[in-house]
Design a protein around this nucleic acid. Structure first.
Lengths: 335, 335
DNA sequence: ACATCATATCGAACCGGTTCGGTAAATGAT
DNA sequence: ATCATTTACCGAACCGGTTCGATATGATGT
């Protein structure tokens, strides 16, 4: 491995001059710069990012932390962030917390130890203590999807109450009144907001909510499956079900199929977020989808900006709220 | 940030002793060790992984390189590898080459510069030159899914000819003779082997293959869609289609739906590999699935072993071939 | 011609660890 | 009691960069 000293020797200059030539070429004499570049070419010198990180106290790595990379929503965001990061010379270090707050915290600390340049985080931790932890983090963080009050960080997400408001309105217009709602983990930002969207819309329409039709599916496939089972085995089962995310929504569809219910003939279904290949799923599911790509794009831009300049880093945190899109399928029918 | 020198000062020992205490505690006196541990506790000292990497010439990062993290198959493998890596104190650095060989190569070089401990690679590059590149790589590499002759690396994958052999046999038994085959990128290990499995089985059964029914879908959704369209718009369209992977298989299903064909009544379909939520897709698709989890597990074990000991690192490369599993769906019918 | 200032380059300290050769004391062998 | 060996610890060099203060040189102003 050739080092900066080899280059310096070959070019007949000091190592500090080579370093200068590498980082601010204008500050080096034209002829010297030339010799250095020759030397670099001929030795095939490549800067050592590890040494650079140690010296600079900051690496050219960006962290991406979320639960469920397997979920298309996060996958799309990841892809977009990775794409932009690579364009700017950053690598993306990915960590999947599997939704465990303690693990997430450990991961963040590990990333910090790596002197990571910045972190894109879909937080699963909650509570004031955790918010403080995030607020006092020295590394730039951009949060996405999950907002955490008190963390005082940039946030990129969707209008979550609107997602379920749209779906609920839709079902109400079709004449549904007994609507089952499979919620996400209570306490989680998006979960709470989506639930709120549902409740408020129902209340606003003057429709009584049967509390037993509001269940918590934890945003997971298994949780959604169990809760959908509970809803659908009831005698007075709902005429429609809303899945607060794609996992629980599809889990509900699966339960319908397993129990022999026809969707939408027997039970209508709507959910938040898309899944890959949803267009080969029968029936085409009615959903409200977030623009994951745009979301990732914004998060990446914001993060890269904060990393790039101290002024941007000091700027007050800002929220970016995207408006989700309604996609009508054939999984909901008029009562 | 407290450093090893702070700990040394507080414990009244030299920094080399602290380093010793950290790395081989048995080589330090009991009482001294105690004082050092006290000092570490009270200062909250955390070792700096960057400095450690620079000094050791090796980091505690493991690289995962593949195309299409979005594909459940790779996602599952990634999850498994990440899981095991974290258990062993390694972080996983993920890079998605999007199937571009040049980018893949650049990524590998970048990872090497990071002094990464090891790499799990599903190679997209091909050719002898690339194989040499991989062979001469100084970092331990375990290849999975895609085998590259001449790379001389551990390989963990499935019996690829068998995947399509099983599917072809199945279709032949059902009476199909005109079978369309949507292949992967020619030159790619799994693609070639799966194609071979199909061809050989057809030939072995004495069935003529219409070459125009064998198309290349590039393993991608768009490619698969285009080729399935070609196959299905023909007057003499095939009675059954095999997708060489999940993307092309589902793309074919999508085309059928778009064109108003019923599966399996009009056209039968079978494919290699599963997708998430395949059980809510109608019809349930007949497929041969690889055990992605087992595959990831083996790859991780192999890689970690090579990283852990010099003897293991020097061991000759070995192949691990898993047997795929047939999952009968309702997408294939007797002619 | 002399003080002033910008420009080009260098030397040395530093980032925070690891590692190896060496020393002094303790243990064991004869 | 003497020599060999082991044990416990230390000092210093090193990994490969960055950065800052210092110096030398040449250009500018008057």
């Amino acid at each position: 491995m050739t080092t900066i000293r080899d280059v310096a020797r070959l070019a007949g200059v000091s190592i500090s001059t080579v370093s200068l030539a590498l980082n601010s070429p204008k500050r080096v004499g034209a002829e010297t710069l030339d010799r250095i570049q020759q030397a670099i070419k001929s030795t095939g010198y490549r800067i050592d990012p590890v040494a650079q990180t140690l010296a600079r106290g900051r690496s050219s790595l960006i962290g991406f932390v979320s639960a469920n990379l397997g979920n298309m929503f996060f996958g799309d965001i990841r892809r977009e962030i990775e794409h932009q990061a690579l364009d700017h010379g950053y690598f993306v270090l990915i960590a999947d917390s599997s939704g465990r707050a303690d693990l997430e915290r450990a991961l963040l600390e590990r990333l910090e130890a790596q002197k990571i340049a910045g972190i894109a985080l879909a937080a699963n931790g909650r509570g004031e203590e955790y918010a403080t932890f995030l607020r006092d983090f020295k590394t730039p963080i951009v949060m996405f999807d999950q907002k955490l009050e008190g963390a005082e960080r940039d946030f990129v997400g969707s209008d979550n109450p609107l997602t379920t408001t749209i779906l609920t309105e839709h079902l109400l217009q079709l004449g549904h009144r007994r609507i089952g709602f499979i919620s996400g983990p209570s306490g989680l930002h998006t979960a709470d907001e989506r639930l709120k969207g549902f409740m408020n819309t129902m209340a606003g329409a003057g429709v009584d909510i049967d509390p037993s039709l509001v269940v918590e599916g934890g945003y997971t496939r298994t949780g959604g499956h169990a809760q959908a089972m509970r809803l659908l085995t009831r005698r007075d089962r709902p005429t429609a079900i809303i899945g607060a995310n794609n996992m629980t929504g599809l889990a509900a569809l699966q339960v319908m199929q397993e129990m022999g219910f026809r969707c939408p003939d027997d039970v209508s279904l709507a959910m938040v977020d898309d899944v890959p290949w949803s267009n080969v799923i029968t029936p085409r599911i009615t959903m409200v989808v977030q623009d994951a790509q745009k979301l990732g794009e914004l998060a990446a831009q914001r993060l890269l900006a904060r990393i790039a300049s101290p002024e941007a880093a000091a700027a007050p945190p800002q929220d970016f709220i995207l408006t989700p899109r309604f996609v009508r399928g054939e999984s909901t029918r008029r009562l």
